[in-house]
């Protein structure tokens, strides 16, 4: 029963996955362009962000059409509501990729103050989390979603590491401040990306259980002694 509607839901999910892979690719390209200090490729990432925005609006329109014409209930309604949320998170993820590309343009061809080591690690972690979060949505796998959300701590730890390292550079040699600050923005974008993936994990839990719960509650940082 409701075969046409089931096919529509399947197609909606496929479109969302396609958006997800566009976003993952944008992030990978933005960091790759940074590593190679490739201005052309960075501009390409920024231009491509428009396509991602358009894709997001197209999926949103599909969601609204399905709600209006099919009057979805219960798990169907939750799936569509989740897709609406997830595409918003994905679109914001793409903005982080574009943000990194803009920072690369700012850094330009100026030699790096240090080799990029932890930033590519953050990228790998981000991409892996994104892939698996979307798979968890497809599989409606609550346990996987919870595990992936917990990995946000690893990304936060990498961010702290980069933060400390760049601070050390800046203290040692004030001439590094400008670039170090920019690299810190890059790391910040990568850190926020993982937060968005955590939101996707929350939507997996919501789709399956109907529970809305924050998964990544950040402890307020302790005051330095």
């Amino acid at each position: 029963m409701r075969r046409a509607f089931d096919e529509d839901l399947q197609e909606l999910q496929n479109q969302m996955l396609e958006l997800g892979s566009m976003v993952g690719e944008a992030l990978a390209r933005s960091v790759d362009a940074l590593k190679r200090q490739d201005m052309q490729a960075s501009r390409e990432v920024i231009r491509n962000d428009m396509k991602i925005n358009e894709k997001r609006f197209a999926i949103e329109a599909d969601c609204l059409r399905l709600i209006a014409t099919q009057q979805p209930m219960a798990r169907d309604l939750r799936s569509i509501a989740a897709v609406l949320e997830i595409i918003t998170d994905l679109e914001r993820c793409a903005d982080y990729a574009a943000g990194i590309a803009k920072i690369t343009l700012m850094i330009g061809k100026e030699p790096f103050i240090k080799p990029l080591i932890d930033i590519p690690r953050m990228l790998e972690k981000d991409l892996s989390m994104l892939d698996r979060a979307l798979k968890a949505f497809v599989d409606r796998d609550v346990d996987a979603a919870r595990r992936i959300a917990a990995e946000d701590d690893d990304v936060d730890a990498l961010y702290d590491q980069i933060n400390n390292e760049l601070l050390a550079f800046m203290l040692q040699d004030p001439r590094t401040v400008r670039q170090a600050t920019r690299l810190l923005w890059v790391a910040h974008n990568l850190e926020r990306f993982a937060d968005r993936v955590t939101n996707i994990c929350e939507r997996v839990v919501f789709t399956v259980t109907g529970e809305m719960r924050e998964m990544n509650i950040q402890e307020p940082e302790e005051e330095p002694q």
């Binding site: 409701r2 219960a74 798990r75 309604l77």
Partner: peptide, 19 residues
């Protein structure tokens, strides 16, 4: 009941996948 029914039979009925 219409957003997160507890029973699978309710779910199947209200999503039109009954039987």
């Amino acid at each position: 009941v219409f957003t997160r029914p507890r029973d699978k039979r309710t779910e199947d009925y209200i999503t039109g996948r009954f039987g």
